[in-house]
Amino acid sequence: MQALTIISAVNDALMTEMQNDKNIVTFGEDVGVEGGVFRATVNLQKKYGEKRCFDSPLAENAIVGTALGMAMGGLRPVVEIQFSGFVYPAFNQIITHVSRMRNRTRGALTAPMVIRMPYSGGIRALELHSESMEALFGHIPGIKVVIPSTPYDTKGLLISAIRDEDPVIFMEPKRLYRAFKQEVPEDAYTIPIGKAAIVQPGTQLTLISYGSQMKEAKEATALLQKEGISVELIDLRTIYPYDKSTILESVKKTGRLLVVHEGPRSFGVAAEIIAMVSKDAFEYLEAPPTRLTGADTIFPLPSAEHHYMIHTAHIVKRATEVIRYQP
């Protein structure tokens, strides 16, 4: 066992899995010599050589497009988009090819590849360095979307993503990159994609969150506990395909649901979960399923960032309202 941060767990997953599978290559902007601007790929080039870990020219669309070509050619590329805010030029490749190749060719050609990208705000960054746009990816048929929130899950989920036969968008909560350490096995292990984690079992309220927002969700859970409120905290971990059965089982037990995420509200992940719960657990609900999310605004620059972010106290406030709700 080793104590790792999330960012070092990303590195460790790549280090471990590239040892196991010679077809894995990783590339992107500054990924080679520098080891990535966040150091996710540090020492990979030194260990595995320039053919397996390298810098690419600065063009996200071609990074993803060439990775797809490599995947169809038998490799398993893991590409890095430096910030999720720069992925938009690559949407053409993601939507028109990466997500569709298996279906288009009736399985003759597939896209086993991972597109990694740091996302989330709260790091006092420049414009387009803070957004949480996972819902955009969740809406594209044919790709999986994974967001870990702990070092242990990061390694296990990234290895699963690399081994997956379908394309995976792997969004990393950069606010938590170095926030804390956790014991992580040195060997390879996997955590299944599509499976949520019950971080803390509880009976009165189901609180669902994921990624960077999990920090505040955990703090809120602990505070509510002190108030005598029993919260079941679920880390969604996979945005698509999301773990419907774990969510339903929990809501049927608690009767109350609060979904919290940083991304904008309308047409977001919480909207999907709440729509599903409202239909499939309607008769169990004791309060309106509620969401606490980022607003449908442009993410503010650092001077006003705190007007966007969801703090622990905000979650406690909304959770209390859901708990106290009387029809």
């Binding site: 497009g65 060439t66 070509g69």
Partner: peptide, 17 residues
């Protein structure tokens, strides 16, 4: 033209192998 990057990736894969 969205197929052009695929060709470059395929070429890279063949070279790699």
């Amino acid at each position: 033209s969205s197929q052009l990057p695929h060709a470059v990736g395929l070429a890279y894969a063949e070279q790699y192998k």
